[in-house]
Write a protein that binds this DNA or RNA. Structure first.
Length: 878
RNA sequence: AGGCGCGUGGCUCAGUGGUAGAGCGCUUCCUUGACACGGAAGAGGUCGGUGGUUCAAUUCCACCCGCGCCUACCA
């Protein structure tokens, strides 16, 4: 399973596939309802079946895997359920394109053959993303993988749809919907992306039928005048009051239409007169309903003008616009046109300009569903993290509009509705009917529309668990514990899961909703294929390794922020993975099969007591951070612990300990203990490298992913060891700083003296002589109570002691005087500020006592330091 | 129009009512037996602007400027 020796650098490609296969084949990802452990469940936001893994997936799913692995190691019976979404429009479009290459259309195949063809494509491409998810190391329970078109999930869809129908929450009717003339289907409001685009505002004269001047309307869509059935003005608009009830002549078609009054007209906008095109504008449609105006459709399903468009029949909508503007201009009816910003809706999938279209569609009445869903968040049964997203949720939910759920596609859940050929009865049923319940006729025709893909996605937290059966999985894993996803689908998905879950599954679908940011490039721009700035996670894996990518994404996941992913950042964390690898290499080189125990912790040397205490601290930080979804803090704590404390200090200290034959076994034991626990802490973020190393260390159990997650034990903290080690580190750093300041070659060993007035300080330094000598590369270290002749040494106060390094041959007096003068100024500066503060009676009286005390301590310390520096300077004669 | 968020060292970003941190980059020195994907030591910031609250504000409040995003039926 593992290589014999460790290379100098970690080679991810050699180890990653091996471990994933081992985990999956061993069944380590599988949930175990019979385990008796507390369940923890999360379902994947199902990726598009024809899609491939992009960086957005990698980001949110990495965070999910971190949580899932952490919970699993912490003793939960963990289910992370994978699945795929059939993605109606997107998938159908892909297959239609394939057909187009063969010179065929889906109509040539017929519905059934086309569906078969899509299934073939699904089988082929659905495996792609599943493979990619494995490459990322995600610990999904593949035995429970679901697809939204699976029989059980389809059954759930049908159950929900029919129930809603029975409860009057589904209705069908002729309304204006968003229509994509390229996809040839209705869209929901959410599937339209509205943006302000440059257009024009045309002022067009509609002459009065009696030969008068008539009225000038303003419009951004002149071609729709062919479908006008009135002109509306505000009832109190003095300019037009005389025209209300009169008739004007519709240009081009020369049809007479009335001038009507309605308060919805904005007198300030344009000319204050608006043309009414009920069949092609949502506002006009509503106005027409109020005013009893007829609707005239002038376009077909592909945006081509129809017979009602007179001379423009057969032209595309945009082509017709040009012709009509020309004609109006020629006839002198075009008063003017001005540049105007138009809010233009485009199809989310294909970017075609969406057409408001009057058509017969199915809708879900959302009001009654939204109410309990709003309450669940209001009273905290569902909590958003970060909490602020609940505002976005409320904003949308409180103004929710009915949901158009029918799509004119062939790929999806066909709406379970039939029309009786005999009596026209509409039948909506769970089981396919064979006879009409009303007239007994058998000529039933099924609805051809399918449901919005999000309708089935909205059931995902429970349809995947077997609902509507009260299956064991459903009972155990519903509600899910947390839903983790991006803010871009709060409305599309999260809100709908809450509404449908509460109504049908009997409880909230999940307790928490964690919203992650959107991955951006290093310039902060949104990543997209069209911009060409997107990062391909698979390419990153290939280049830097999965753990590096995962660690990077985790480290960037600060709440409420959009992470910027750049190459430099990745390289930094790749280096971290390699650093860990080498710490392991060092440990294993020294281990030599030794399995001694560290024994009594209190009896261990200072660095060992210190690192074991720090380990407890970092274990606490990581657990606390993950509890609050503070991925950045968890990653940061581990990064700094391993690099700055374990590698930079403990490993270096251990070299001294290991050189001492009696000390070595315990040092090895501590080294192993710290490394092994660190690996477990790190495993949820970087699963591969941690497993690879863990397997080589003394360990129990078949895999690190099943080993216990370290829990902090406060009784194992050792504050005095941390304090002492801090002093030791400051002393070593002071020596190193002096060496660096005077450019002493790193390999050269120098002499140093520590002057300490107090007995305990002297004993302290003497006790750690070997460590200090090694860490600071000293030839000798002398500890004395006092030392004259400061003029011949470098003198540096360090806490309660003073460091003296002979100048002979290394340093010169003038440079040292300059250095000390600078230091004196710095100390005086800080002292000044502190003293002023302390002289202020307000501060002393009103500030927190500990702050005042702290300031006083600092003053005392600085004064001591200043005195020492001043004394030295005086001895040096400056 | 409404809502949300952001503006901190060269870059990308954390953070806190008590004179600021990280990663990368940069400077100097160093191939010392874990690691040059490395080591040691450094330089670098009036924390967008203006007021207010406070003994104390980068941190709280108000306004302003700049930048994102979301929602919305101004033709």
């Amino acid at each position: 399973m593992i290589q014999e020796t460790l290379g100098k650098t970690f080679e991810p490609r050699d180890v990653e596939p091996r471990w994933y296969r081992y985990w999956e084949e061993s069944g380590f990802f599988g949930a175990d309802p019979a385990s008796g452990r507390r369940p923890f469940c999360i379902v994947i936001p199902p990726p598009n079946v024809t899609g491939s893994l992009h960086i957005g997936h990698a980001f949110t799913l990495t965070l999910q895997d971190v949580i899932v692995r952490w919970r699993r190691m912490s003793g939960f019976d963990t289910l992370w359920l994978p699945g795929l979404d059939h993605a109606g429009i997107a998938t159908q479009t892909v297959v239609e394109r394939q057909l187009a290459k063969e010179g065929r259309r889906k109509e040539d195949l017929g519905r059934e053959a086309f569906e078969r063809r899509v299934w073939e494509w699904k089988d082929e491409s659905g495996g792609t993303i599943a493979r990619q998810l494995r490459l990322m190391g995600y610990s999904l329970d593949w035995t429970r993988e679901r697809f939204t078109l699976d029989a059980t999930l389809s059954r759930a869809v049908r159950e929900v749809f029919v129930s809603l129908w029975e409860d009057g929450l589904v209705y069908r009717g002729n309304y204006i919907v968003n229509w994509c003339p390229r996809c040839v289907t209705a869209l929901s409001d959410l599937e339209v992306e509205v943006a302000a685009e440059n257009g024009s505002l045309w002022h067009i004269r509609y002459p009065a039928a009696d030969g008068g001047q008539g009225i000038v309307v303003a419009t951004t869509r002149p071609e729709t005048l062919l479908g006008d059935t009135a002109v509306a003005v505000h009832p109190e608009d003095e300019r037009y009051r005389h025209l209300i009830g009169r008739r004007v002549i519709l240009p081009v078609l020369k049809r007479e239409i009335p001038v009507v009054a309605d308060a919805f007209v904005d007198r300030e906008f344009g000319t204050g007169a608006v043309k009414i095109t009920p069949a092609h504008d949502p506002n006009d449609f509503q106005a027409a309903q109020r005013l009893g105006l007829p609707a005239v459709e002038i376009m077909d399903e592909r945006g081509v003008l129809n017979g009602n468009a007179g001379p423009y029949a057969g032209q595309d909508r945009l082509e017709a616009r040009k012709g009509i503007v020309n004609q109006l201009s020629a006839e002198g009816l075009l008063v003017k046109s001005t540049p105007h910003q138009v809010p233009l809706g485009r199809c989310q999938r294909c970017d075609t300009v969406v057409e408001p279209r009057l058509s017969n569609q199915w809708f879900v009445r959302t009001g009654p569903l939204a109410e309990p869903a709003i309450q669940a968040v209001e009273d905290g049964r569902i909590v958003f993290v970060p909490e602020n997203w609940s505002k976005t949720y409320f904003e949308w939910m409180r103004n929710i509009r009915d949901w158009c759920v029918s799509r004119q596609l062939w790929w999806g859940h066909r709406i379970p509705a039939w029309t009786c050929g005999g009596c026209s009865e509409l039948i909506v049923a769970r089981e396919d009917p064979t006879t009409c319940p009303k007239c007994g006729g058998t000529a039933l025709v099924q609805e051809t529309d399918v449901l919005d893909t999000w309708f089935s996605s909205g059931l995902f937290p429970f349809s995947t668990l077997g609902w509507p059966e009260k299956s064991a999985d459903f009972r155990r894993y519903y509600p899910n514990d947390v839903m983790m996803t991006g803010f871009d689908i709060i409305f599309f998905w999260v809100a709908r899961m809450i509404m449908l879950g509460m109504r049908f599954a009997g409880d909230v679908p999940f307790r928490k909703v964690f919203i992650n940011g959107l991955v951006r490039d290093e310039k902060g721009e949104k990543m997209s294929k069209t911009r060409g700035n997107d990062v391909d996670p698979l390419a990153v894996i290939e280049k830097h390794g999965t753990d590096a990518l995962r660690f990077t994404l985790t480290a960037l996941a600060a709440p409420g922020t959009d992470p910027s992913l750049g190459e430099a950042r990745l390289l930094g964390y790749k280096a971290f993975v390699n650093k860990l690898w080498n710490a392991a290499r060092f440990t294993l080189m020294n281990l030599a099969g030794d399995r001694a125990s560290a024994g009594d912790v209190a009896a261990l040397p200072l660095p060992s007591r210190w690192i074991l205490s720090r380990l407890q601290d970092v274990a606490g930080s990581v657990n606390a951070a993950l509890e609050e979804f503070r991925f950045d803090q968890a990653a940061g704590a581990l990064y700094h612990f391993l690099w700055d404390e374990v590698c930079d200090w403990y490993v270096e200290c251990s070299k001294v300990l290991l050189a001492d034959a009696t000390e070595a076994p315990r040092a090895r034991a501590v080294l192993v203990e710290v490394l092994e626990a660190s690996l477990r802490l790190l495993h949820p973020i970087a699963p591969f490298v941690t497993e690879e190393i863990w397997q080589r260390l003394p360990h129990e159990g078949p895999s690190i992913m099943l080993a216990g997650f370290p829990k902090p034990d406060p009784t194992k903290r050792d504050p005095s060891a941390e304090e002492e080690m801090g002093r030791l580190m400051r002393l070593v750093t002071a020596i190193r700083t002096i060496r660096a300041t005077y450019e002493v070659e790193p390999r050269r060993r120098i002499d140093a003296t520590v002057v300490a007035g107090g007995t305990r300080d002297r004993e302290f330094v003497a006790r750690h002589e070997a460590l200090v000598k090694s860490l600071a590369r000293l030839e000798s270290l002398e500890v004395v109570a006092s030392a004259p002749d400061a003029a011949r040494t470098i003198n540096q106060p360090v806490g309660a002691v003073e460091l003296r390094i002979p100048m002979a041959g290394l340093f010169d007096l003038a440079a040292e005087k300059t250095r000390l003068s600078k230091e004196r100024l710095k100390v005086m500066d800080e002292l000044d500020g502190l003293r002023k503060k302390l002289e202020n009676p307000q501060f002393v009286q009103r500030a927190k006592p500990e702050v005042v005390a702290q300031s006083r301590e600092r003053v005392a310390e600085l004064e001591g330091r200043l005195a020492k520096v001043a004394a030295t300077l005086q001895e040096m004669g400056g």
